[in-house]
Amino acid sequence: MKKQVLRENIVIISDDSRQNVGKQLYDTLCKQKKEVQYISIGNVNVKPCYNCAGCTYKTYGKCVVQDDGDYIYPKLLNATTWIIVTPLMWGTYSFQTKRVLDKVALIGDRHYYVSKKELVKRMQGNMKKYFAIGIKDECSLEEKETFTSLIKENITIMSVTGEAFVLREDSSQESILQIAREVSK
């Protein structure tokens, strides 16, 4: 797969229909002079993947359906670090966030690889790190563990590094700064 070498840059994908933490994190990273872009997906329209194989044959590497994914996937392909900020829904992403992630294989490598004695996939582009922040005020330990293990699986299958965080909507500036430090490491 041909790769285009880019400098470190961050894309924040934020379902901000019910949270403002993504925006705060963006402001924090901007103040630190990081190269960062903010994509609000609270109102975007990314249609479902019908597994039609159009991206395999008809329009190789691209979804045959035109929607807001045409704006989002090029941004993700360019980024070295992805940060997903989503309302936490029973240990998983929000509906809007998952619509974007469901078609992420569009910018994935089709081939199989082996890591730690198991089959994995890889992404195209220069993605190295994946962070996901689930926002929920009252989150049980069980739900936090479910979200953390989901993110761990995402990180494994995409062959990148990263981490999951769970924050309250009214999180302190200090906890946002802490995440900014983690993603910049």
């Binding site: 479902p48 029973w90 509906f95 998952k98 992630l101 992420v104 995402n154 299958i157």
Partner: peptide, 11 residues
């Protein structure tokens, strides 16, 4: 789909 049910399940 990427380690979880498709998006509309959450909806």
């Amino acid at each position: 789909y990427i380690n979880h049910f498709p998006a509309d399940t959450i909806y």
